[in-house]
Design a protein around this nucleic acid. Structure first.
Lengths: 221, 221
DNA sequence: AGTTTCATTTTGACATTGTCAAGATCAATT
DNA sequence: AATTGATCTTGACAATGTCAAAATGAAACT
């Protein structure tokens, strides 16, 4: 029955109107995801944790699909943030590519259930602008890594849609994007051949470095 | 109330014992997956389609996790079959690598819900020998593609576990495996940049060819 | 033959879940 | 002061996974 002490002047007053219910539900959802995983993730439990009745979420998110869409968008925001942070720390191009791969993989390992939802087209509503924008921001970050590898000018998020410079290097984007995502997903779902954990990062470095060189050289030779 | 006309001499007799219930349930599950997707996939509906009561599956599969594990194993069997078929048709090494990627991607697109379950560690029980074997067969097929690319002798499935020749080329295996899986998964979950469908296969060919060359050359140069 | 054993299937029950419709509550505008 | 509209609650419904206990029938045993 505890309430968030943020919005109203009365901090812990039990009032009919929650005030920040939408945000509280999202936070409850993310916490639940971490603690109980996807199978323990229910709308009713989120409502319980936010201290409201079981039907309260409906007004803010419609149905469970709408709720998951917001959760996924938040995941892409966080992933974008992590990518930017790591990329900023890198000093060379090779290092940047490795840092990107590492950040992506580590996000998937640190927030496995969150990551799974982000890449479940059947659970999300594709019409959501909120989600589309968050995804595009992540994609822009990854694309710019490739563009820098090739010594070409970066793009801004708004230019991504059907941008010509992107189409021109689509092959390279695909190589980088598939590499990074495939690795993260396979590790997450434990589908990899038996690699000792301590060798994993070394392998990540070797593979990333070779792919980075391939991308730097472009299609030629 | 229709019964399978396979096992007993009496084809359509309504009998207390089903005879081939286990197999019928699996078939019902796969059909359900294709028709209604994962959200329409329930144990009770499978039982209904097999013409038995709602609790009948319990004796054969334990719980839903056990059931999904069998479904996933069947998916890996089918994927292995498709890979072998396509690989056998290829005549050159480059062609073989492309064919492998195509088969993997096409499987994911043709059986999306099946594919999703196969790569959901949280839904499957990792202790299942049936599943582990089926996965290892798929992995062996992919590994041998890489080994042939590098002109090295192939391995048999039983040798995969901790095989030295695998550890030696782990980097190359990872490049191929991540590429193929990342591409398939991203296409399936509609996370790709806006690529016109007719350009998709061309891109797949270009990317696969460049990666195949990278693998053929090994780590050197 | 008759009996027993055991795998298989049914029946009935329980706690949970997502969703919906109707009503209650409260803030803000008129 | 009255009304409007957003926000939340209550109560209900059908469905699901799982469980325990009982029913069924096939096969083994005496």
């Amino acid at each position: 029955m505890r309430r968030k002490a943020t919005a109203p002047s009365t901090p812990d007053r039990s009032s009919y109107h929650h005030g920040t219910l939408r945000q509280s539900l999202l936070e409850a959802g993310e916490a639940l995801l971490r603690e109980k995983g996807f199978k323990g993730f229910t709308l009713r439990e989120c409502a319980r944790r936010a201290g409201v009745s079981h039907a309260a979420p409906k007004h803010h998110f419609g149905d469970v699909k709408g709720f998951l869409t917001e959760i996924a968008a938040g995941g892409f925001d966080e992933l974008t943030r992590m990518l930017r942070e790591r990329i900023a720390d890198a000093t060379t191009l090779d290092e940047e590519f490795i840092a990107t791969t590492r950040a992506y993989v580590e996000f998937a390992q640190a927030q496995p259930e969150h990551f799974r939802i982000m890449f479940r087209d059947d659970l999300l509503c594709a019409e959501s602008d909120r989600l589309a924008t968050a995804m595009q921001l992540t994609f822009t970050e990854l694309t710019n890594v490739i563009l820098r590898q090739r010594g070409e000018p970066e793009i801004r998020c708004e230019e991504v849609e059907r941008d010509q410079s992107i189409v021109a290097i689509l092959d390279d984007i695909m190589i980088g994007w598939c590499h990074v995502h495939g690795l993260a997903h396979l590790i997450l779902e434990r589908q990899l051949p038996p690699v000792p954990a301590e060798l994993q990062d070394g392998m990540l470095i070797t593979v990333s470095t070779r792919l980075a060189q391939l991308i730097q050289h472009g299609g030629k030779s």
